[in-house]
């Protein structure tokens, strides 16, 4: 009966109570009790934790800001360097695209030899439509040579010195180019104007000309090689009692944004002026 002393009974009761509680807890009977007691504790812990973290951030922030500012400055300088590199690369890409386009034109028209030139200036007088290029007689440029871009006809060499040449654009008021309309198969004259607009003249009255018709050089007169793209018809005008129709033309070349051209080297302009009888 020594086994049933008060100490052993106390131990057995504790073991039984703990086992009972474990059994109840594992079987889920104590969940409401746990919720009731643990939720306030968790809330309290969360509240305390948030305050602690805020306080820690507040105390350690100045160091981080300094570090971030340094990192930001480094990144900003890197961004600036990359932007400047990007600008240089974009410029090179633009130049390369122009070169590729000019090369492409040369490939599609292999019968001609070309001299590539950069546009370096424009005529000083606003009444005239001329540009100045950086190639002259030293590079083989001669008076009268036709000038084109990858898009189409630009004009012809009007004056040339050793390292530069002046190009008369087809949009100049004194410029006349013999052209043909591809769809209507008729020939006409392309004239420039004071404002740089170009228009077709000498179109027969019975010719059917539609907006969008393609205009190519005809080669007549011997000033330009045939079949070079010039532009498209915008609209036609027929005045009463006029002998010919006229038409507004959208030139294919943007003369305001032109920055590189090709001079056709192996085309010799024919001077027909001695054949024209003097009045």
């Amino acid at each position: 009966m020594k086994f049933l002393n008060s100490r052993n009974i106390q131990t057995i009761v504790i073991v039984l109570v703990v086992s009972g509680l474990l059994f109840l807890a594992l079987s889920g009977y104590l969940t409401p009790v746990f919720n009731l007691t643990l939720n306030p504790l968790i809330s309290l812990q969360s509240w305390l934790s948030v305050r602690y973290l805020s306080a820690r951030d507040f105390l350690t922030t100045p160091r981080d800001v300094t570090l971030l500012r340094e990192q930001n400055a480094i990144l900003e300088s890197q961004v600036t360097q990359l932007q400047s590199q990007l600008i240089v690369l974009e410029e090179r890409l633009g130049e390369a695209q122009v070169c590729f386009a000019l090369l492409d034109f040369g490939r599609t028209n292999p019968q001609y030899d070309y001299i590539a030139a950069t546009v370096i200036g424009r005529e000083i007088s606003p009444f005239l439509q001329y540009i100045i290029i950086d190639k002259g007689t030293e590079q083989g440029v001669r008076y009268g040579m036709p000038v084109v871009t990858q898009q189409g006809l630009v004009g012809h060499v009007d004056a040339v010195i050793a390292r530069a040449a002046r190009i008369k654009l087809i949009s100049d008021s004194t410029s006349v180019v013999n052209v043909r309309l591809q769809s209507a198969e008729i020939e006409a004259q392309l004239n420039g104007s004071l404002t740089g607009d170009v228009f077709l003249d000498m179109i027969p009255l019975d010719a059917m000309v539609e907006p969008g018709d393609v205009i190519l050089t005809s080669g007549l007169g011997g000033n330009f090689p045939p079949n070079i793209f010039v532009g498209q018809v915008l609209s036609t005008q027929l005045r009463e009692n006029a002998l010919f129709q006229t038409a507004s033309v959208q030139p294919i070349v943007d003369f305001e944004g032109i920055n590189a051209v090709l001079v056709i080297q192996n085309f010799e302009a024919v001077d027909t002026s001695p054949l024209i009888p003097e009045p």
Binding site: I120, G121, R122, E123, I124, P126, G196, E256
Partner: peptide
């Protein structure tokens, strides 16, 4: 002259330019 031909002749108002 260089400024005129390289820059100002391209800067047009209708068809007019500064000289």
């Amino acid at each position: 002259y260089i400024l005129q031909t390289a820059v100002f002749s391209w800067t047009t108002l209708i068809s007019g330019t500064a000289d």
